[in-house]
Design a protein around this nucleic acid. Structure first.
Lengths: 328, 328
DNA sequence: TCTAGATGTGTAAACGCTTACACACGGAGG
DNA sequence: CCTCCGTGTGTAAGCGTTTACACATCTAGA
């Protein structure tokens, strides 16, 4: 309970040496004779001394860190060309944080990264277990961003799809809707799996029958899926898409077939991409805080670089339900 | 990419004021005229300035924080009497961290806490949404430990039940087991829900039929549940309990009925309580890092107290699969 | 008109550590 | 015998903030 913190200078006094010497012992650099070293170590032990991290950070802040951001070509491209907003915003979050924390960041492809960097940020769905293992082998700090690889114990920063899905489905149900269909991306991608699980759990908790269709952005045709749904399942009261793209396409198809949105069918997406607020009706969705995804990941890496030696952790950011016009 | 950090003094120069004034603006305390405040804000914006946390920590380290740990009577008792190891270890993690960070912590019951404390740590399954809201109303930092209340946006530090369950079930399946039964506590408790979801998702991913039974430690009788399972489901190849207590009791009942553990039935628990390694055969289980649960929560609260103003986050600690004698 | 407080701003001293620099000593090589 | 260099240790200058204290100025009440 006591608030009296023992400081380096206390150790120095006890061991009858200067603060510089104690520091040398702690950091194990510079010349220290065996005799003195032992005395200092004993003093540290005796006082239960632990260095104040903040002070250490500050004093060390004269040194810079080199960090590599690794991403596959698609993500890389979407960062540099701002072709896709998602990753460029994440990237901005990283950059902004780094600027103020003496980290020099370099964007690199997954197959040409610098093994000598001080730390690594691996971004996006293209990151594989193999790559992570390879990078981990450098023994340098590693943080994965917007990608979760179950079973791999490493630091993650992701958005909480489960929580978001639970919230959205609960919300729809509270409006009296029961026939809620989920259209999701490939479940092998954890981001989709997470949202799917949240959807299923919530439907079951309320005693409603879940129904889901897989839609792969590159290979599948939404028109076909909607037809299939209408035939096999019938008319839904709401559709929850595992991302905005799927939700918007489903909405278009439904409108084409004469359904009124949101009167006949409510639609909810996930991500809050730019176009979510541009389509008509404007899409209700779960907003992912992309910028924070980046800045929190950078912060985590920074802490790791500063020698925070706890075991890896998964940090999940909550999403925010943004109610627009596509839901009753 | 540049490593040149903008500092408070740079902002001060640009805005033509002293560092003290800039600091006042940032921390929103002390007197600052609207005119000057605006100028400073503009300078901050222009330079993209972010305060260096380390320096801030250090400078603020003159002040001490009073923090309250809130827990229901049962948790409180298990901390103080070491009746239950779980929460006393979590508590120790908190205490140890606090000692070196100028936090004075006070253990309090959920109905007699100090509204004037600087921050709050709410521990255990007994924490209700109502309590959290009440505490949040103080506008002071709050961190929930070992309790997750979906829909409530607040900081959490929990162990990752989903990941642990996925790992355990995958492991059992890799041994060739298919008929894996899950015995779980009340799903209204998120800790159990999480593990349940992981179990279901993994079984389905492999195309196996999940089967689960609810077992409430206080009201249910394991003997009855095992009989029911044997009758309705038949003989399982493995049982995955959502905590060690359930797993151990199931094991006892199975042994009573002549099953050999692990030859006939493999058993896996969750928690790694003391007795897990005392029973015979020793229980294979997922270890929760209780001490780190506490220290990480304390650290998170500390960061919050220091004015880290990002939005709430859920921090999940990975569990560790400890293979002992109850699994083939 | 005078004065006590409220309001606004600056100066400079911490905070606890690391490390550049200075200094001292002793032995080796010339 | 002198110099040079490797060792060992101390002194003190930062690192980027916050905040106590000092000092101005303004406002309101007597």
């Amino acid at each position: 309970m006591s608030s009296k913190m023992t400081r380096l200078i206390d150790v120095a006094k006890l061991a009858k040496v200067s603060t510089a010497t104690v520091s040398r012992v702690i950091n194990n650099n510079g010349y220290v004779s065996a005799r003195v070293k032992e005395r200092v170590l004993k003093a540290i032990e005796e006082l239960g001394y632990q260095p104040a991290r903040a002070a250490r950070f500050l004093a060390k802040s004269r040194q810079n860190f080199e960090v590599n951001i690794l991403a596959d070509d698609w993500v890389l491209k979407s960062i540099t060309t701002v072709l896709d907003e998602f990753y460029s915003i994440v990237h901005k979050g990283i950059i902004d944080f780094s600027k103020n924390h003496r980290m020099n960041v370099h964007l690199r492809s997954v197959n040409s990264w610098d093994k000598n960097a001080d730390g690594f940020l691996l971004i996006g769905g293209g990151i594989t277990k193999e790559l992570v293992k390879e990078v981990k082998a450098t023994k340098k700090p590693v943080v994965l961003v917007d990608q979760y690889l179950p079973g791999l114990k490493v630091d993650y920063v992701v958005s909480d799809g489960y929580d978001g899905a639970v919230f959205a489905v609960d919300r729809l149900i509270s409006k009296g809707l029961k026939r809620i269909v989920h259209i999701h991306g490939p479940l092998s991608h954890f981001g989709f799996r997470d949202r799917y699980d949240g959807y299923i759990a919530t439907m079951e908790r309320h005693g409603f029958m879940p129904k889901s269709y897989e839609f792969d952005e590159v290979s599948d045709n939404m028109s076909v899926i909607i037809d299939m749904m209408l035939r096999s399942y019938g008319k839904p009261e709401a559709i929850f898409g595992s991302n905005d793209t799927a939700a918007i396409r489903a909405m278009e198809e439904l409108k084409l077939r004469g359904f009124k949105i949101p009167d006949d069918v409510s639609i909810v997406g996930f991500d809050d991409i730019m176009s979510a607020s541009l389509v008509s009706p404007k899409l209700t969705t779960l907003k992912i805080f992309k910028y924070d995804l980046g800045s929190i990941a950078a912060r985590r890496l920074f802490n790791l670089l500063m020698g925070e030696e706890r075991h890896p952790v998964k940090i999940s950011l909550f999403t925010q339900y943004i109610e627009r016009e596509s839901t009753i």
